[in-house]
Computed example of a mutant assay.
Amino acid sequence: MAKKSKKTTKRSGKASGLGGWRLFHTVLVVLGVLILIVAAIGLYEPLQKWLAPAPPPLQVAPIPRAEARPPAAKVLRAEIEHELERWGVPRAGLRSLPEGTPGYQVAADYPGQARCSDLAVRLSALSPVVRVERDVENGRVMVYWRERTLFQLHFLPPKPSRPGKVRVAIIVDDLGRDLAVAERLLAIKAALTFSILPGEAHAHEVAVRAHRRGREVLIHLPMEPEGFPEVNPGADALLVAQNLQDVRIRYNSYRQRVPYAVGGNNHMGSRYTADRAAMQRILELLHEDGLFFIDSRTTPNSVAMDEARALGLAVAGRDLFLDNEADVAKITAQINKLAKLAQRRGQAIGICHPHPETVTALARVVPQLRRHGIEIVAVSALLEGSGGR
């Protein structure tokens, strides 16, 4: 009996051991199923997105380029009004032009080139193809988009000058190369202004002869142009990269080569006159010597007159080039245009060069100007705000 009982005990122990393993196995299966269920739930949405068909590509309307259309009229008008306020023109000084003509009649004097350049920079932020042009003869500033007129500013007509007070200054640039040409110009009985390039062979002699014959002498200051060095203003030109000491050395050499100079104007200089720091350097030296500056306006971006005013330096700007085309008839027409401008404004400044055609035109036209009450004066008589020297 005892042996049987021992066998029974062994079997029951074996059974309980098998039952434990089965329970453990069941628990593992259940946990595995639960894990699979949780994983399936987590992967359902990503799988659904992965298996779903791709959506059609988003259709984005092309953004029009800034220059594809003109700026909105209201925005353009507001920017122009803000710029006019900066010039000191209040809203009360603006009157709309007749219906159909976008623009203002402005109760202010006609602006200089520097102010128009500031307006152009402001409006270029609206569209890079907006441009500002001066119509000096008609007293207008025009705003264009491509070839379309967007806006006009009509300024007050100048006060009529007193009889005998219509004055014109004519500067002859690039002198000093040819003594014979200088003599032909000195033979014209008029107060032409002689602007002499300091690097020319006969610069000193032309300055001496002009002074002895009562003509005003300027230094034709060679300055760095756009396109330098391919466009060359001369071996001793003023360059934007030069410091004050470099500029002083060159300026002093100009003074020695061109005696009797009372002022200067720029030869080329489209880059130099647009650089504020560069212009400050040369204008300070002119100011130290009591000389004035005439801006030849070889670029619409010139800051020369603004910087001269800031220094308290006497200054003026060129109104017309007279001989862009070396043709006697066309030069004559430009001189007459300068005279009409002077009759409207009381004074005007023209610049020309010692071409044979120019000398011929001047010799013919200057006597006629005098007969019409227009006085040819040295340019120092027309300096801004000076009333002459």
Rank of each mutant, 00 (worst) to 15 (best):
K4S: 11
K4I: 11
K4V: 11
K4Y: 10
S5A: 10
S5M: 10
S5D: 09
S5V: 05
K6N: 04
K6C: 02
K7A: 12
T8I: 12
T8Y: 09
T9G: 05
K10N: 01
K10S: 02
K10F: 09
K10G: 01
R11Y: 10
R11H: 08
S12A: 11
G13W: 09
G13Q: 12
G13R: 08
K14G: 08
A15Q: 12
A15Y: 05
A15M: 05
S16W: 07
S16N: 08
S16L: 06
G17H: 04
G17K: 08
L18T: 09
L18V: 06
G19H: 05
G19F: 05
G19D: 13
G20D: 08
W21Y: 10
R22G: 13
R22C: 10
L23S: 10
L23R: 07
H25E: 13
H25Y: 02
T26C: 04
V27N: 00
V27L: 05
V27G: 02
V27H: 00
L28Q: 06
L28D: 01
V29H: 00
V30G: 02
L31T: 07
G32M: 03
G32E: 03
G32D: 03
G32V: 01
V33M: 15
I35C: 14
I35K: 14
I35Q: 15
L36Q: 15
L36S: 14
L36K: 13
L36N: 15
I37E: 07
I37V: 15
I37T: 13
V38L: 14
V38F: 14
V38S: 13
A39H: 07
A40G: 15
A40S: 15
A40Y: 10
A40K: 09
A40W: 11
A40E: 13
I41T: 08
I41Y: 04
G42Q: 12
L43W: 04
L43K: 01
Y44P: 00
Y44C: 03
E45V: 12
E45Q: 12
E45S: 12
E45T: 13
E45R: 13
P46M: 03
P46Q: 02
L47S: 11
L47R: 07
K49N: 14
K49F: 10
K49L: 11
K49H: 14
W50F: 13
W50K: 15
W50E: 15
W50R: 15
L51R: 15
L51C: 08
L51G: 10
L51Y: 10
A52H: 11
P53D: 04
P53Y: 08
A54D: 14
A54T: 14
A54M: 13
P55H: 14
P56I: 12
P56L: 14
P57S: 01
P57I: 00
P57W: 02
P57H: 03
L58P: 03
Q59R: 08
Q59K: 05
V60G: 01
A61R: 05
P62Q: 00
I63V: 15
P64S: 00
P64G: 00
R65T: 14
R65E: 15
A66R: 09
A66W: 02
A68P: 03
R69G: 11
R69L: 03
P70T: 00
P70F: 01
P71K: 01
P71A: 04
P71V: 01
P71Q: 01
P71L: 04
A72S: 11
A72L: 11
A73F: 10
A73E: 12
